[in-house]
Write a protein that binds this DNA or RNA. Structure first.
Lengths: 139, 139
DNA sequence: TAAAATCCCATTGACGCCCAATTTTGCCCA
DNA sequence: TGGGCAAAATTGGGCGTCAATGGGATTTTA
């Protein structure tokens, strides 16, 4: 699901994703740096709370928990779509995800990600290779 | 079972495959990139759910689980057939399977695949050759 | 007050849905 | 066994709707 960024730096969020958002009655989007990938994750506030709960389950003094907390709170901003369901691709998004003029949308249930197209395929190819090697080993 | 893509980019799914789908009462199709072959696999939504359940068993923040999620969610879309049982061959399908104007259908029990015709024969030849070499070694 | 962000509207294009024409298939009968 | 026929499948294309796009106009902010 790849879309072009227009001259004003906007991308229209595919209607499939917008449908999910409206069904969940989400108007304000929390846009943050993904925990493991060079991608931007976009979710409603309640998903944010879920992440926080998960972090709270761990050791509050662990490096892991603190890093994640930092990513969530320090690495995110609130945004909203314009009347036509478009999102402004800010420098925050461009820099972290390496996006220039194309964005690939990846839905993940109740939230979705923005990827630089080739970065996504690279990561997917890498994962496929790993899976292949695994199955070879188990032969 | 090779079919041509029409001027509008559609292929009619052979009735044999559609029969299977209707028998399983599948209206929405989960169309995803095959894990091992350069082909598109098409199945019902329950296949995606099975994948998701498998992922949910692990740590949602682990690299492992996230990579699998990326493969599943980033490599699959939902589609449905038109009134005459045709499927639009989107860029998503074309790019991954290398399909241009012809599609070969391969049934695999409860799901089926879309192949670029020559890619399928190449893969079959390769497999045949490997089997030959195996039998020679074991002689 | 200039630049940027936001809102608004017109146009384009893609897609779903429909109907008609044509081809293929399975079956019956001479 | 070879037609002939009816049903089913496939194919081609028209048309309306809505998402996507492009470009002003207007407001906000620094």
């Amino acid at each position: 699901m790849t879309k072009k960024v227009d001259a004003k730096g906007r991308v229209s969020v595919p209607s499939a994703f917008r449908t999910v958002l409206t069904r969940l009655d989400i108007r304000d989007l929390y846009v943050f740096q993904d925990f493991v990938f060079p991608a931007i994750s976009i979710a409603g506030p309640e998903v944010l709370e879920r992440f926080e709960r998960h972090i709270d389950q761990g050791d509050p003094f662990s490096m892991e928990a603190n890093k994640m907390s930092l990513l969530i709170h320090g690495g995110g901003v609130f945004m909203k779509l314009d009347g036509e369901g478009r999102l402004v691709v800010s420098d925050f998004i461009r820099d972290f995800a390496g996006i220039t003029d194309q964005v690939t949308f990846v839905g993940r249930g109740d939230y979705f990600q923005l990827w630089e197209p080739s970065a996504l395929t690279r990561m997917q190819d890498e994962t496929r290779r790993e899976r292949m090697e695994q199955s070879v080993r188990s032969t």
